[in-house]
Structures are given as C-alpha cells and as structure tokens.
C-alpha cells in the first residue's frame, strides 16, 4: 500500500516536471540553466569516475569488440564518403538557390540530361519542356553566367543551343567601355566577339555582358571575359577572344529565364 503511493507520487512528480518543462513557464526557463550550472561539477566528477572504472574492467571481451568495430568502421567509412558527396551536392545546390534568389528574373531550374551527339554543333538537352513553361528562344543561364538559348521545346525536354556553337550569335557589350559587338561561338569554351570599333580599348580580363538587344537575352548577364584581342585583317573592326564563364562540359544545372 505504502509502496504503491510512493510510485504514484514519483510518477506524479515526473509528469508534473515534464508538463511544466513542456509548457515552459518563466520560472523554469529562466532558472533551468542556472540549475545545470550548479550541478556541473558533480556531473563532471561522476563522468570521470565512470571512465576510470571502465578502464579497470578486464579485456576478455575486447577481441570480439574489435572485430565488430572493424566491420562497423568499414560501413561508417562508406557512410562518410556518401555524406561528403551529399555535402558537396548540398553546397552546389545552395549556391544555385542563392543565385536564384538574387536573380530578379523569373527562372525555371532544369537538369542537363544530355549533350550534343555531334562534333559539328554544340547543344545540350534539359529535363524541362513545354509542360514546365519552357518556350523556344528563352535565355538559359547557370550560376556562373550565360549558357545559351532554347531552340526546341518538347513536352518534357528541351534543346539548348550553347553560345559556343558556331551558329550562335549574341549581342554583347564590354564592361569598361560599354562598346557593343556580336559574340559568335567557336567551340572549346571560347567565343569570338566581333564588330568592335577600332578606337575601342579592349583589355584582357575585361568582362563581357549581354547587351539586352533583340529581346532574347536579358541585359547584363555575364557571358565571359576577354582573353585576347586584335584587328580583323582587311576590315574596319576589332575582334576579341572571349572565354565563357561556364565550363560547358561540366554543366549540370541551368535556369531558363521567362
């Protein structure tokens, strides 16, 4: 009889403590950390004592334990590798998400699912199509800069003409002088900016942005940077070789701009 009353009292107190902690009354929330602080030296002492006792326990069962831990280590190593991969993916996606937030334009994210099977043209295939509001002539960008434009939109996939394709032409301007020109693809991650007037000073490292003419590409998207320049032989224009900001061979995610 007496024992059962004690049990009921203990359960009641535990329940009350849980209830009060869960509802977080001020008296508990403000003083809880102070109680923990006060109990800390005692807790530390108990931890030290238990560790000391564990060290004194005979080693008979350690062999099995080592085998078990070895196999567990193997599994955990694989898990660590998997998590590292997930961490890298997470960082990349977070970067894309931040980019999308920073982008004021309405963008549809898409995954690159295929490359051009021909060496004579440069295009990619993405996993979004008309059902996801992709339309021909939409500009396509990545977090690093301009990628190209949609040339064909299927229901579930679309084809993107990269700016490195010889048939791609984009109106661009130079960062410093704001001098305009046409960016023409020439493969291998570089383009040729043509029709730059002779009196324009073109410096290597200068960024090249989209001009926004024509209504396909929005203004001020990074297309690349100048690596060299020269005069077109027999013509009244200069040209510049522009290294694209994206590495198209490693492109995995893109955005189609509405």
């Amino acid at each position: 009889m007496y024992g059962s009353r004690i049990k009921i009292a203990v359960f009641f107190i535990i329940g009350l403590v849980i209830l009060l902690t869960a509802t977080k009354p001020a008296i508990f929330t403000s003083n809880r950390i102070a109680i923990v602080d006060a109990a800390a030296p005692g807790l530390k002492f108990l931890k030290g004592a238990s560790s000391f006792i564990k060290r004194l326990i005979p080693f008979a069962s350690y062999r099995d334990e080592i085998e078990r831990l070895r196999s567990k280590t193997g599994l955990l190593s694989q898990e660590v590798l998997r998590l590292k991969e997930a961490e890298l993916e997470n960082a990349r996606l977070k970067n894309l998400l931040n980019f999308r937030t920073a982008l004021r334009l309405s963008a549809i994210p898409a995954q690159v699912i295929g490359r051009d099977p021909s060496n004579w043209s440069n295009s990619i295939i993405i996993d979004k199509g008309r059902d996801q509001a992709i339309r021909p002539n939409m500009a396509v960008i990545s977090s690093l800069g301009l990628v190209g434009r949609v040339i064909e939109a299927g229901r579930y996939s679309s084809k993107i003409l990269l700016i490195t394709d010889p048939n791609s032409k984009v109106g661009v301007i130079l960062e410093k002088t704001r001098q305009g020109g046409i960016l023409v693809g020439r493969r291998a991650g570089s383009c040729r900016m043509i029709y730059i007037s002779l009196d324009t000073d073109v410096t290597p490292g200068e960024k090249v942005f989209t001009a926004g003419y024509g209504g396909v590409f929005p203004k001020d998207l990074v297309a690349g940077e100048v690596i060299s320049s020269g005069k077109e032989p027999g013509r009244l224009y200069k040209y510049a070789i522009v290294k694209t900001s994206c590495d198209f061979s490693r492109l995995e995610e893109v955005f189609c701009i509405k």
Binding site: G114, D116, S118, W120, N122, S123
Partner: peptide, 9 residues
C-alpha cells in the same frame, strides 16, 4: 538519323 534527332544542326 540519331545524330540529326539529338543534335542542334
């Protein structure tokens, strides 16, 4: 045919 279908040319 395959190249024509999947490429942009």
């Amino acid at each position: 045919l395959l190249k024509d279908i999947f490429s942009s040319g």
